[in-house]
Design a binder for these strands. Structure first.
Length: 292
DNA sequence: TAGACGTGGTT
DNA sequence: TAACCAAGTCT
């Protein structure tokens, strides 16, 4: 496989000059700090993660510190980041790290992948960013950049293909620390320049080598990209319900939940689902609380 | 494997 | 304004 391409040097140089100064990239950030950031950043913009990451890593500087607290505290401190099951899984991951790995975030892709809430992307990201290993880190940004640069398409296919993985691997510099830098660099390029809408091609360090550009920037012509309606869904209902518990200092009575969603059938379904997910704890006295 | 899963900013 | 989008994972 290739180890260098015409894209490598320009993108690395661009990153050195344009990388954002994000706290989880600071040299003294621990692997745990990196892991927390990666989970928080799933489907969530950097600007909203910043303050929550700060609070979390200060309050729980190690996996053991988080594992020592009830999972409900993790859910509460998650605030309005969204997808609160991530908080639950991060707490579970902290417990597993404490029990199985002596309190140290594991460095191997395999061990990371075995942790709850960590999939192929996050395992690769942590192994690469925190441990300077050589992995293809294929997130939505990188998939879009590679689609444009090499496939000449505006967007990558809806679901990730093996061809994309092979392509990303073929682009990885051989030297692990350089591969790790390359991984963040491509991701950053996708986040700042090669964006989904209105890409800033004038600022692109590889515009002269971009297949999409050379093709005349053809518009996406594949199947419609999934649009997610939200109003009126179970997801919105779950969000309302959980917000009540998050904002309450003590367990709440049922009416406090009933008042935030008028459709009783949907409300009960959502509440049951939250309980099944372990995000809500139905107490014996009939009240409801975040899990202990 | 398609769909569920939160939330808020941008266009 | 409604739709799209943001460092995905799980089932």
């Amino acid at each position: 496989m290739n180890t260098e391409s015409a894209y490598t040097a320009p993108i690395l140089a661009w990153y050195d000059a344009n990388a954002r100064d994000l706290p989880w990239r600071a040299p003294d950030t621990t692997p745990w700090g990196v892991l927390v950031s990666e989970i928080m950043l799933q489907q969530t913009p950097v600007s909203r993660v910043l303050p929550v990451w700060d609070v979390w890593t200060t309050r729980w500087p190690t996996p053991a510190a988080l594992a020592a607290e009830p999972s409900g505290e993790a859910v509460r401190a998650w605030g309005r980041l969204g997808y609160p099951r991530r908080a639950l899984r991060l707490h579970q991951a902290a417990c597993a790290i404490t029990e199985r790995h002596g309190g140290d975030v594991p460095s191997s892709h395999e061990d990371l992948l075995a942790l709850p809430g960590i999939g192929a992307y996050t395992a690769a990201a942590v192994a690469s960013f925190a441990f300077r290993q050589r992995h293809a880190v294929l997130d939505t940004n990188v998939r879009r950049v590679l689609a444009r640069l090499l496939s000449g398409a505006e967007y990558p296919p809806k679901t990730q293909t093996k061809a994309e993985v092979r392509l990303a691997e073929s682009l990885l510099p051989l030297d692990p620390p350089t591969a790790a830098r390359w991984a963040v660099a491509v991701m950053e390029l996708g986040a700042l320049v090669c964006t989904a809408r209105s890409p800033r091609c004038v600022d692109c360090p590889v515009i002269d080598k971009c297949a999409w550009q050379l093709n005349g920037r053809p518009a996406y012509d594949g199947p419609p990209r999934r649009g997610q309606t939200y109003a009126g869904t179970d997801r919105q209902c779950r969000g309302r319900l959980l917000a009540v518990l998050r904002d309450a200092d003590e367990p709440v009575e049922k009416p406090a939940l009933d008042i935030v969603w008028s459709d009783a059938v949907q409300r009960e379904r959502a509440l049951d689902a939250l309980i099944a997910d372990g995000l809500v704890d139905p107490l014996e006295d009939g009240r409801y609380a975040l899990p202990g």
